[in-house]
Simulated assay, not measured.
Amino acid sequence: MSSPESGNLAYLILLGAVLVFWLFVQNRDSLGKKAQAAAAWGLIFLGTIAGIGLWDDIRQTVAPQQAVFADQGRVELPRAPDGHYYVTLTLNGAPVRFVVDTGASGIVLTRDDALRAGLDLQGLAFYATAMTANGPVQTAPVEIAQMSLGPFSDSEVRAYVNDGEMDESLLGMTYLQRFKRLEISGGKMILER
């Protein structure tokens, strides 16, 4: 334990001791009920301290985050509680969240994500058809000038904008094949170039 941690612990113990001492001095007549209240407050205090100490672990479990290891040329995507893998890429300078879909052949953007990436939706022609689990949908081909995932950057990336309703943009195999290694192991998807 480091010096700051030891100092914080000593301060919390001293503060707790002072509060307990004050409680007993003020309420000498009804110590039984006060002891119960003190025990309850002590448990609340310990629970709060435990929650603060474990917050990073709790946050990672509830909302796992992607990790980029630029020096190793690797990106790790944790499996989300819903079983999918999500990744945030930068499209033309704007962050866009994708669900990784190894069953999709291309990159498919929602209308909102296409706007966020600076694409002009007015000039799009929705003439292409894509087959989805829910049937055919109309799509418009687009080109993303700059697409980045951590240290990995690609120019002039072909994608499609979906004309139908879609909750998340899809990152399909045309992008995933740019990596020399894709592995799913231990609840993580690992991408390496």
Rank of each mutant, 00 (worst) to 15 (best):
P141K: 01
S3F: 11
P95L: 04
L115N: 13
V87W: 06
F69P: 00
R74W: 00
S3L: 13
W22R: 10
I13Q: 14
P141I: 00
F126W: 00
F21A: 15
L9A: 15
R111V: 02
M173Y: 06
P95E: 10
A133K: 05
G118T: 01
S3V: 11
G150S: 04
L91H: 01
I49G: 03
L121R: 00
G106Q: 11
S153N: 13
S105D: 12
R97I: 02
P4G: 14
S153F: 02
W41N: 09
P141A: 00
K188T: 11
A104W: 02
R79L: 10
A140Y: 03
V25C: 04
E156W: 01
E143P: 02
A38R: 05
I184W: 01
L46F: 07
V87H: 07
A130M: 13
Y86R: 09
L23C: 13
A130K: 05
V62Q: 07
D56Y: 01
R193D: 07
L31A: 12
I144A: 08
Q36N: 07
G186T: 05
Q122K: 09
E76N: 10
T132A: 08
T61S: 15
W22L: 10
L19C: 13
G135L: 04
T110P: 09
L149H: 05
A40G: 08
F98Q: 02
W22T: 12
G106F: 07
S169L: 05
R79D: 12
V18W: 11
F98W: 03
G187D: 06
R59A: 15
L19I: 09
A38W: 02
Q146V: 15
I58E: 11
L15N: 12
A130L: 13
G172W: 01
I58T: 14
N8G: 15
Y160L: 12
P64I: 06
V137P: 14
Q177N: 14
E168K: 12
E5G: 08
L182H: 09
L149P: 02
A140G: 09
